[in-house]
Design a binder for these strands. Structure first.
Lengths: 208, 208
DNA sequence: AAGAATATCTGCACTCAGTGCAGAATTGCA
DNA sequence: TGCAATTCTGCACTGAGTGCAGATATTCTT
């Protein structure tokens, strides 16, 4: 064995493989029978584990769809860290949105698309998603306020991040109403960023 | 009988009484044993109905805490309808927030306080609450855009309403961190309105 | 390499939310 | 009073999720 690998121990590698098998099985079943039409017993069987074991990987059925680390928060945080003198707070948020679209393959993955579709249709999934979004909102607002202590108080920071995410959600809502919107995720992302930037234009610094 | 009453028929009055008995029993039990420590069977027993009957009044345990008609959306819609020539969209939203605080006893009711506390602590309740908020957000944005078709497109309206609700949530978050914040709901509401108005100042029209 | 220590897997029995159904009880109406 | 429509309720069921205890697999020690 190569003990120099990142996740060396046999245990960890095995566990990671099983985790992935569960996600793959679940995504496949969700596609074919829908979210509510798929039981955890079904997923466990397809992933060749005991039903009980599922819960030692994911605390609930929804958790399956939401990877622990949110790339969007990370993008926002690093965009804030990388600010240049002329940037306004709103500039940084739009920058973060662009960064996510450029770099991350994550947003266009089959899982991400499935998640988006299920958030539209399954209340339990939407509920969990919104909760995660609120947490993200608060965390980004915290960082933003820390970066602009003279310009923003805590409530203003929340308002700005709320405006940003409100614009993102609003844009998604509008864009997803077009049939076939999910066929070309890159294009969707581009249009979303443009719409969000337009909505936030008053808050963006002129010199950009 | 008086057939001229609003909800005349015996059936309807009885049903309303039972509904209220369920809510009262539930609130009492939630206070005493917590949300998750109270089963629907407990509530049904305390309200003197069969367990099965609970579900002919409320679709789920969470539904109990969220009255169907949201006073805040109504306030926003009527504030929008009552706009005066000089008002900016943001003016109307802050006006709606004031109206709710003034008129409605609803926000300071024991149920509302309990709901607020449970939203902080119980994931399932928070999830449902956020979902309702998103619906409210979308509906208010629709009305706002209809009232200002020349100034706002759909995404901008979402952004503005997102800013507004983001400010409200942010203010709540900040204010609720102070211990005993819930002791004086009127004061809390006043401070919240002031913080939100301050955060939205750039959006408000100068002539106010 | 053997065995102890530790982490993981899994079946079993359980609680609770929520649903479908069918019959009993209640109310409305002629 | 008697018939129709609603509402109530018990029963049996599914599915999510938990606690526990024993079986299995991995890692560490010597």
């Amino acid at each position: 064995m190569l003990p120099t690998m990142a996740d060396s121990s046999l245990r960890e590698r095995k566990r990671e493989r099983t985790r992935q098998a569960i996600v793959d099985a679940a995504v496949d079943l969700f596609e074919r029978h829908g979210y509510e039409g798929t039981t955890i017993a079904d997923i466990a069987e397809a992933a060749e584990i005991g039903t009980r074991t599922f819960f030692s990987y994911f605390a609930s059925k929804e958790e399956l769809l939401f990877p622990e680390s949110d790339a969007r928060v990370a993008a926002a945080v690093s965009a804030i860290a990388a600010r240049k003198p002329g940037d306004s707070p709103a500039d940084l948020l739009v920058q973060a949105l662009s960064d996510v679209n450029e770099h991350s393959t994550e947003m266009a993955s089959p899982t991400a698309l499935l998640r988006m579709r299920l958030m539209q249709t399954v209340p339990a999934v939407r509920g969990r998603g919104l909760q995660i979004q609120l947490d993200a909102q608060l965390e980004i607002a915290r960082h933003l306020q820390a970066a602009f202590p003279d310009d923003l108080d805590a409530v203003q920071a929340s308002a700005l991040v709320g405006a940003f995410l409100g614009a993102v959600m609003g844009a998604l809502q509008v864009l997803l109403e077009e049939p076939g919107a999910l066929d070309d995720p890159r294009k969707l992302q581009r249009r979303m960023r443009d719409a969000v930037a337009a909505a936030l234009r008053p808050w963006l610094s002129a010199a950009r």
